[in-house]
Design a binder for these strands. Sequence first.
DNA 1: AGCGGTACCGGAACCGGTTCCGGCACCGCT
DNA 2: AGCGGTGCCGGAACCGGTTCCGGTACCGCT
Lengths: 355, 355
Amino acid sequence: MPPKKASNKEIASNEVEKENAADLTIDDIARLAGVSVSTVSRILNDKPDVARATRQRVKQVMDDLGFSPHSLAQRLAVRRSRSIALVYPLADMEGRADVAIFIGKAAFAAEAENYLFSFAAASLTESRLLSLYRSAQVEGVILMEIHMDDWRVEVLKQNNYPFVMIGRCADNTDLSFIDFDFEAAIVMAVDHLVGLGHQRIGFFNSGKLYQDGYGPAVRCALGYERAREAYPVELRHFEMDNIQEAAAAVLESKVSAVMLGILGTHFGLPIPEFLRAVQHLGRRIPEDLSVICLQDDAIAKNMLRPLTSITFDINVAADWATHTLINRLEGRYSEVEQVILPPQLNIRESTLLQP
Amino acid sequence: MPPKKASNKEIASNEVEKENAADLTIDDIARLAGVSVSTVSRILNDKPDVARATRQRVKQVMDDLGFSPHSLAQRLAVRRSRSIALVYPLADMEGRADVAIFIGKAAFAAEAENYLFSFAAASLTESRLLSLYRSAQVEGVILMEIHMDDWRVEVLKQNNYPFVMIGRCADNTDLSFIDFDFEAAIVMAVDHLVGLGHQRIGFFNSGKLYQDGYGPAVRCALGYERAREAYPVELRHFEMDNIQEAAAAVLESKVSAVMLGILGTHFGLPIPEFLRAVQHLGRRIPEDLSVICLQDDAIAKNMLRPLTSITFDINVAADWATHTLINRLEGRYSEVEQVILPPQLNIRESTLLQP
DNA sequence: AGCGGTACCGGAACCGGTTCCGGCACCGCT
DNA sequence: AGCGGTGCCGGAACCGGTTCCGGTACCGCT
C-alpha cells in the first residue's frame, strides 16, 4: 500500500519554497516548524502544554509566512460560527441615517469580539429567518423595527434561538431588549412646550404605523395619554399620514405648537415637507408655530434654523445590543436584560417662548 | 473491533424521533430517506445522476424536518467562502446616509447571489486586510473612500486579491471601479450658475482632503480648472476647512454664488453650519448668495428651503460594485470594468436668476 | 533503583459537508 | 449469448482545522 500522503502539495513545497500565503495550512506550518498539527493548533489558540521555545519558533514560522488559519475550518471544528446579523426588515435605508450609525457601531463592536457581523436585508420570510440559524450562518441576531406583536419574535422564541431587540413587544417576558423611551419623550416634549407657555398643543403621529402596532408609534400615543392627564393644557391628537391634511389640521386646530411623533422621512410624512406645507399656509416657524420633532436629528439639526428635537443615543443602543447578544452566545451570563433609554431634549430654534 | 459509528446521535434518533432541526445533518437525512450521503448532497446541489423518485422522496424528508445544510461545512468543502465585505475605513458613519443606502443595496444584491455580505469596520491595518482573505473570511471586497494613491489598492493588487472600488486612483490600469464624475459635477455647477447670470463664483473645497489626495476632492479641483478655462466668468477657488474663514471669504470675495465641493457634514465643514455662518454675516440665501452643493442630498433636500444640489446615483453604484465583484469571483467574466457615473443636477430653491 | 508527577507533544477521530471513482442493473444491439 | 452504454447510487477521501487521549522524557523523592 503506497503512502497516500505524498500529496502534490508536499512535493511542491519540497521543490520550490514559494507557496502562496493564501493556501497555507496548519499542516504546512507544522511540517516547516517540525512539530505536529496539534501543537500548532494549541499555539493558535493560546492553549497550555506547549514549551515556550516551541511556541516562539512556531509563531516565528507563521509570521514569516503570513499564515492565518482558515476561519471556516476553525468555526466548523469548534461548532461555533461566531457570527451575528442585524436583520433589517425594510426595503431600503433611504433616510435612515440612524441605522447607518447603528451598523457602523455594531460592526465595530462585533469585530472587537472576533465575531463576524453581517447584514440581513429585507424581505425576510419565516423559513429564511430560521435557516439563518439552522445553516449555521449566524448564532444570533439583532432585531429592529419591532412591532407590539411581532411574528419574528414568536418564531425565534419558539425555536429557542438567541436574539436581542431594538425595541420591544407587548409581552416581553424572557426577552432581552433595549428600547427608547418614547412615552417619556412625548411627555418631555409637552413639558418643554408648556414651560414655554403654550396652551394648545398638537401631537402628530402616523395613523398607519399606529394601526400596524409599530412599537414607537404606539408608545408615543401612550405618552400622549399620560401627558394629557398630567398637564392642564389643551392637547390635540392627530393621526395623520398625509402632508396636506396635516398642514390643514394645524391651521384649523389653532394650536401654537406641534410635536411630531413617528412620521419621519422614511414613513411617508417627511418632516421638512410637512413644515413647508405649513409655511405655505402662512404660518411662520417658530414665530407662529413652535415645532418639536422626534428622533430624526440629522434633519432637525441640519435645518438652516435647526429644530428643537428629542433624540436617543443610538450608539449606546448599538453597543448594548451587540455586547448583550455576544455575552449570551459566549455564555458569559444569561439573565434577561431589559433597558429603556431615556430621551434627551435638544433645544434649538424652533420652539419659542409664548408672549 | 466494535463498530465505532454507534454514535449517541444514532441511538437518540432511534429512541425518540425528536431531533432539534438545528443540529440535523446530511447523515440524518440520508439515513431517514434510506440513501447515501452522496445522493443527498447531489440533491442539495441540483446535480444529475439522481432518479426523479429518489429526489422527491429525499426532498420531502428534508422539508418535513426543516433541514438546511450547514453552510460552513459546505463552504469549506467547496473551498469557496462565498462572502464579500465592504471595507469602510472611517471611524463612524455619522452623517453618511449615502453609505447606509449603499450597504442596504449591496447586502440585498449579495444575498440574491447567495453571498454573505459583511461589513469590515474602521481601523484597518495591512495585516488585517490581508488576513481577511487568507483566513477565507472573504473572497473579495468593495473598497470605498479611495485616495489617488491608496495603500490598500497596492496591497491587494500585489497579492492578487479580487476587489472593486467605489472611486478610483491616479493609476487604474487593471483595476475595476465605478466612480462618480466629480469633474463633470463641478463643470455642471458652473454651467448652471453661469446660465443664471452669475459672474463671480466661488468654489469651496476641503484643503485637507485635497492634500490627502482624497479622490473626490482632487477631481473636484480638476473640474474647477476645466470650468475656469471653459467659461468666461470669474472663478475663485478656496481651500477651506474652517467655517468662520469660509464665511468670511464669501463676503470679501464678493461672489454672488458658491459651489460647495467636498466638505460635507462628515468632513469638518458641515454645509448647514457654513450657511448659517454666512447668513449671520448678513447674506441671505438665495437672495444675496446662490448656493449649490454636492452629493449630500439628504441635507440639501431637507432644508426648509431646499438647496440646489448635484448628486450621483448611489444605488447603481452599489449594484454595480456587488455584481461586478461577484461576477469576477464566479469567473463569469474577468475583463476590467471601469465606469464613471454622470452627475445629476437637482434644481431647487437656493440658486437664483441674477437681475 | 524504582516510583509518581509534570511538562510537552503526536496520533487520530471528528466537525458536516462535496466529489471522484467505481459498481451494479438494465437496456438495446449485433 | 455477449457486449457496450447509460442511469443511478454508495464508499471513501478530502476540505482545514480542534481536541481527546495516551505516550515519552525528565524531574525529585524515598
